[in-house]
Amino acid sequence: MSQNDNLDLKPVPGERLKKFLRRSDVLQSTLFGLIITGVFIILGGKYYPEWMPAAMSTDMKAIVKLMTVFTWISAPVCGVVLGIALYSFLNRHKGDTPPPDGPATRTNGPVVLLWSVVTSALALVAVLYGLTEQNSTSLASARNAEDAMVVNVIGSQWAWSFDYPEYGISSHELMLPIDRPVSFKVVSVDVNHSFWPVQLGVKVDANKLAETLADTTPTKLGEFDVKCAELCGLYHAYMETTGEVMTEEDFNSWVSTQDGDRNTK
């Protein structure tokens, strides 16, 4: 930011700043920036929760919140960048010849420093926030590990199947009792798949001969989708099935209707 014009005239820093803040380009850029920031805050708060499916687990709730908060953190960044860019765009030079030269500002130490500090601080906030969220998720799963229901998830080209070792049954649909922690042990019998019960906000790859873990606690009754999120060949698109979060009684009665003779090698 150049203050060439008043460099010598106003040696008092406070005065220079005041004068700078009254400049029309500064005012207009700031105005644009504020409007853009506001728009992004509103969009983030409104549209992510609207687009994303209704949260059916603790994890999914945290994710929707996180998407919203990240939009809010980045809104001022958008404001600054787009405010300045928009002002400059509107304040264009017209004509078929190059415009007259602008001020020969090569750099501005304090601005570069301030910018670096602010972006570092924002990055730090994002990192800390993400790490905290991740930590609380993994703490929760550690707490839940003992009374969790284990579901063995098996990905095979191009269908999912679910074994419930506790009940000795298996199913092509993922039925879960509400409010009971569930621990998914995910494997593949062939290529890589990615187990994604969408509304539960859980995802983990299925690998051959390597069990991966994911866990959550369903908190809302209803149906959800189970998809494959890793391209796995011919019918990857169709490697989907449904699941349902049920009351304890419904779940138990579903278990009793399943035949127990699971085929094992």
């Binding site: 098996i154 095979s156 019998v189 062939d190 699971r262 085929n263 094992t264 090698k265």
Partner: peptide
């Protein structure tokens, strides 16, 4: 020979 995923031995 053998199924990759024995689950599909079931009739559903």
């Amino acid at each position: 020979e053998e199924l990759n995923n024995p689950f599909f031995g079931k009739v559903m």
